[in-house]
Protein backbone atom coordinates (compact mmCIF):
# COMPACT_ATOMS: atom_id res chain seq x y z
CA UNK A 1 0.00 0.00 0.00
CA UNK A 2 2.62 2.49 1.12
CA UNK A 3 4.85 1.59 -1.78
CA UNK A 4 2.14 1.95 -4.38
CA UNK A 5 1.50 5.49 -3.13
CA UNK A 6 5.11 6.37 -3.39
CA UNK A 7 5.24 5.38 -7.01
CA UNK A 8 2.15 7.45 -7.74
CA UNK A 9 3.57 10.48 -5.94
CA UNK A 10 6.95 10.27 -7.62
CA UNK A 11 5.25 10.28 -11.02
CA UNK A 12 4.84 14.04 -10.63
CA UNK A 13 8.08 14.84 -12.47
CA UNK A 14 9.21 17.09 -9.61
CA UNK A 15 11.85 19.01 -11.59
CA UNK A 16 9.48 20.21 -14.28
CA UNK A 17 6.69 20.97 -11.83
CA UNK A 18 9.16 22.89 -9.71
CA UNK A 19 10.22 24.99 -12.70
CA UNK A 20 6.61 25.67 -13.67
CA UNK A 21 5.80 26.77 -10.14
CA UNK A 22 8.80 29.06 -10.05
CA UNK A 23 7.80 30.66 -13.35
CA UNK A 24 4.25 31.07 -12.13
CA UNK A 25 5.50 32.88 -9.07
CA UNK A 26 7.47 35.30 -11.25
CA UNK A 27 4.48 35.80 -13.53
CA UNK A 28 2.31 36.46 -10.50
CA UNK A 29 4.62 39.16 -9.16
CA UNK A 30 4.96 40.79 -12.59
CA UNK A 31 1.20 40.94 -12.96
CA UNK A 32 0.84 42.27 -9.43
CA UNK A 33 3.22 45.18 -9.96
CA UNK A 34 2.74 46.09 -13.61
CA UNK A 35 0.27 48.89 -14.25
CA UNK A 36 -1.13 47.26 -17.41
CA UNK A 37 -2.58 43.84 -18.08
CA UNK A 38 0.10 41.39 -19.27
CA UNK A 39 -0.33 38.48 -21.63
CA UNK A 40 -2.29 35.62 -20.12
CA UNK A 41 -0.40 32.47 -19.07
CA UNK A 42 -3.19 29.92 -19.23
CA UNK A 43 -0.75 27.13 -20.10
CA UNK A 44 1.17 27.68 -16.88
CA UNK A 45 -1.97 27.99 -14.80
CA UNK A 46 -3.53 24.88 -16.35
CA UNK A 47 -0.35 22.93 -15.81
CA UNK A 48 -0.22 23.86 -12.13
CA UNK A 49 -3.93 23.16 -11.66
CA UNK A 50 -3.36 19.70 -13.18
CA UNK A 51 -0.51 19.07 -10.79
CA UNK A 52 -2.65 20.16 -7.87
CA UNK A 53 -5.55 18.00 -9.00
CA UNK A 54 -3.27 14.99 -9.28
CA UNK A 55 -1.85 15.66 -5.84
CA UNK A 56 -5.35 15.98 -4.34
CA UNK A 57 -6.23 12.60 -5.82
CA UNK A 58 -3.09 11.02 -4.44
CA UNK A 59 -3.80 12.48 -1.03
CA UNK A 60 -7.26 10.91 -1.05
CA UNK A 61 -5.55 7.54 -1.15
CA UNK A 62 -3.42 8.20 1.91
CA UNK A 63 -4.60 7.54 5.43
CA UNK A 64 -5.88 10.63 7.24
CA UNK A 65 -3.10 10.53 9.81
CA UNK A 66 -0.28 10.00 7.31
CA UNK A 67 2.57 12.35 8.05
CA UNK A 68 2.70 13.58 4.45
CA UNK A 69 -0.91 14.74 4.25
CA UNK A 70 -0.43 17.85 6.39
CA UNK A 71 2.69 18.90 4.49
CA UNK A 72 1.16 18.34 1.07
CA UNK A 73 -2.00 20.18 2.08
CA UNK A 74 0.04 23.14 3.27
CA UNK A 75 1.89 23.26 -0.01
CA UNK A 76 -1.34 23.00 -2.01
CA UNK A 77 -2.77 25.91 -0.02
CA UNK A 78 0.29 28.01 -0.76
CA UNK A 79 0.12 27.29 -4.48
CA UNK A 80 -3.61 27.85 -4.54
CA UNK A 81 -3.03 31.30 -3.04
CA UNK A 82 -0.63 32.24 -5.84
CA UNK A 83 -2.99 31.00 -8.56
CA UNK A 84 -6.11 32.66 -7.17
CA UNK A 85 -4.36 35.91 -6.38
CA UNK A 86 -2.89 35.98 -9.88
CA UNK A 87 -6.26 35.41 -11.53
CA UNK A 88 -7.94 37.89 -9.20
CA UNK A 89 -5.44 40.64 -10.04
CA UNK A 90 -6.12 40.03 -13.73
CA UNK A 91 -9.88 40.23 -13.24
CA UNK A 92 -9.43 43.46 -11.33
CA UNK A 93 -7.42 44.96 -14.17
CA UNK A 94 -9.87 43.68 -16.75
CA UNK A 95 -12.74 45.35 -14.90
CA UNK A 96 -10.87 48.64 -14.57
CA UNK A 97 -9.56 48.80 -18.13
CA UNK A 98 -12.28 46.76 -19.81
CA UNK A 99 -12.79 48.97 -22.86
CA UNK A 100 -9.05 49.43 -23.37
CA UNK A 101 -8.13 45.73 -23.10
CA UNK A 102 -10.94 44.68 -25.44
CA UNK A 103 -9.88 47.24 -28.02
CA UNK A 104 -6.25 46.15 -27.77
CA UNK A 105 -7.06 42.48 -28.19
CA UNK A 106 -9.11 43.09 -31.33
CA UNK A 107 -5.91 43.87 -33.20
CA UNK A 108 -4.11 40.74 -31.93
CA UNK A 109 -4.30 37.24 -33.32
CA UNK A 110 -5.69 34.46 -31.14
CA UNK A 111 -2.18 33.23 -30.22
CA UNK A 112 -1.02 36.70 -29.21
CA UNK A 113 -4.20 37.67 -27.38
CA UNK A 114 -3.59 39.05 -23.90
CA UNK A 115 -6.91 37.77 -22.63
CA UNK A 116 -7.47 34.05 -22.24
CA UNK A 117 -10.73 32.82 -23.85
CA UNK A 118 -12.63 32.74 -20.52
CA UNK A 119 -11.27 36.20 -19.66
CA UNK A 120 -12.38 37.50 -23.04
CA UNK A 121 -15.88 36.19 -22.39
CA UNK A 122 -15.86 37.78 -18.95
CA UNK A 123 -14.67 41.13 -20.31
CA UNK A 124 -17.33 41.23 -23.01
CA UNK A 125 -20.09 40.31 -20.57
CA UNK A 126 -18.85 42.79 -18.03
CA UNK A 127 -18.94 45.59 -20.57
CA UNK A 128 -22.38 44.55 -21.83
CA UNK A 129 -23.75 44.45 -18.29
CA UNK A 130 -22.25 47.83 -17.54
CA UNK A 131 -23.93 49.29 -20.58
CA UNK A 132 -27.28 47.67 -19.74
CA UNK A 133 -27.00 48.96 -16.22
CA UNK A 134 -26.29 52.54 -17.27
CA UNK A 135 -29.16 52.44 -19.73
CA UNK A 136 -31.59 51.05 -17.24
CA UNK A 137 -30.65 53.31 -14.35
CA UNK A 138 -29.87 56.61 -16.03
CA UNK A 139 -29.50 56.96 -19.77
CA UNK A 140 -33.11 56.23 -20.74
CA UNK A 141 -34.24 59.02 -18.43
CA UNK A 142 -31.94 61.52 -20.12
CA UNK A 143 -32.86 63.94 -22.91
CA UNK A 144 -32.60 62.12 -26.23
CA UNK A 145 -29.44 63.94 -27.37
CA UNK A 146 -27.38 62.57 -24.44
CA UNK A 147 -28.73 59.05 -24.36
CA UNK A 148 -25.79 57.50 -26.17
CA UNK A 149 -23.48 55.11 -24.36
CA UNK A 150 -20.21 56.43 -25.69
CA UNK A 151 -17.44 53.92 -24.93
CA UNK A 152 -14.73 56.22 -26.20
CA UNK A 153 -15.54 58.70 -23.44
CA UNK A 154 -15.39 56.06 -20.75
CA UNK A 155 -12.06 54.45 -21.57
CA UNK A 156 -9.74 54.09 -18.62
CA UNK A 157 -6.15 53.61 -19.77
CA UNK A 158 -3.46 52.18 -17.50
CA UNK A 159 -0.81 54.70 -16.49
CA UNK A 160 2.30 53.21 -18.07
CA UNK A 161 4.33 56.21 -16.87
CA UNK A 162 3.94 55.03 -13.31
CA UNK A 163 7.06 53.97 -11.43
CA UNK A 164 7.91 50.39 -10.61
CA UNK A 165 10.61 48.43 -8.80
CA UNK A 166 12.46 45.89 -10.88
CA UNK A 167 15.38 43.49 -10.99
CA UNK A 168 17.32 42.93 -14.22
CA UNK A 169 17.57 39.20 -14.91
CA UNK A 170 20.21 39.83 -17.57
CA UNK A 171 22.25 42.89 -18.40
CA UNK A 172 20.50 45.45 -20.56
CA UNK A 173 22.20 48.43 -22.14
CA UNK A 174 20.76 51.75 -23.15
CA UNK A 175 17.40 52.02 -21.44
CA UNK A 176 16.23 55.53 -22.29
CA UNK A 177 14.53 57.37 -19.48
CA UNK A 178 12.33 60.29 -20.35
CA UNK A 179 13.43 63.83 -19.50
CA UNK A 180 13.91 64.99 -15.93
CA UNK A 181 13.24 68.49 -14.62
CA UNK A 182 15.44 70.08 -17.30
CA UNK A 183 13.98 67.77 -19.92
CA UNK A 184 17.22 65.87 -20.39
CA UNK A 185 16.95 62.31 -21.56
CA UNK A 186 18.99 59.86 -19.65
CA UNK A 187 20.34 56.53 -20.77
CA UNK A 188 21.04 53.86 -18.20
CA UNK A 189 22.51 50.38 -18.35
CA UNK A 190 21.06 47.72 -16.13
CA UNK A 191 23.56 45.19 -14.85
CA UNK A 192 22.50 41.64 -14.31
CA UNK A 193 20.82 41.21 -10.93
CA UNK A 194 20.78 44.93 -10.17
CA UNK A 195 17.63 46.49 -8.70
CA UNK A 196 16.06 49.75 -9.80
CA UNK A 197 13.12 52.06 -9.54
CA UNK A 198 12.04 53.76 -12.76
CA UNK A 199 9.11 54.35 -15.03
CA UNK A 200 7.31 51.33 -16.37
CA UNK A 201 7.23 52.54 -19.98
CA UNK A 202 10.93 52.12 -20.91
CA UNK A 203 11.15 48.60 -19.50
CA UNK A 204 7.72 47.31 -20.57
CA UNK A 205 9.19 45.45 -23.56
CA UNK A 206 11.96 43.92 -21.48
CA UNK A 207 9.34 42.67 -19.06
CA UNK A 208 7.54 40.92 -21.89
CA UNK A 209 10.72 39.17 -23.06
CA UNK A 210 11.56 38.16 -19.50
CA UNK A 211 14.74 40.23 -19.21
CA UNK A 212 13.47 42.00 -16.11
CA UNK A 213 11.41 40.95 -13.13
CA UNK A 214 9.18 43.37 -11.22
CA UNK A 215 9.71 43.28 -7.46
Amino acid sequence: MENADDVALSDEEPITAQKVLQTLQEVWLNEKFSPELLQHQSDLVDCILDQMQQMEENLQKLKKNDFRVVIHRMELDRIRYIVTDYLRIRLNKIETYVIHVLEQDVSRSTEDAFLSPPELKFAKEFLAHMEDHFRLIALRHMPSNVQDFDKAKMVVIPNISSHVFLRAKQSITGVVIEGDVENREEEVDLEENSQHIMQYKPIADYLKTGAVQLI
Partner: peptide, 14 residues
Protein backbone atom coordinates in the same frame (compact mmCIF):
# COMPACT_ATOMS: atom_id res chain seq x y z
CA UNK B 1 15.57 62.08 -9.97
CA UNK B 2 13.63 59.75 -12.22
CA UNK B 3 15.66 56.60 -11.87
CA UNK B 4 17.56 55.08 -8.98
CA UNK B 5 19.57 51.96 -8.40
CA UNK B 6 18.46 50.04 -5.35
CA UNK B 7 21.13 47.42 -4.97
CA UNK B 8 21.27 45.39 -1.79
CA UNK B 9 17.85 46.53 -0.65
CA UNK B 10 15.86 43.52 0.52
CA UNK B 11 12.30 42.72 -0.49
CA UNK B 12 10.78 43.90 2.80
CA UNK B 13 12.70 47.18 2.64
CA UNK B 14 11.56 47.85 -0.91
Amino acid sequence: GTHAKLDHLTAMEI
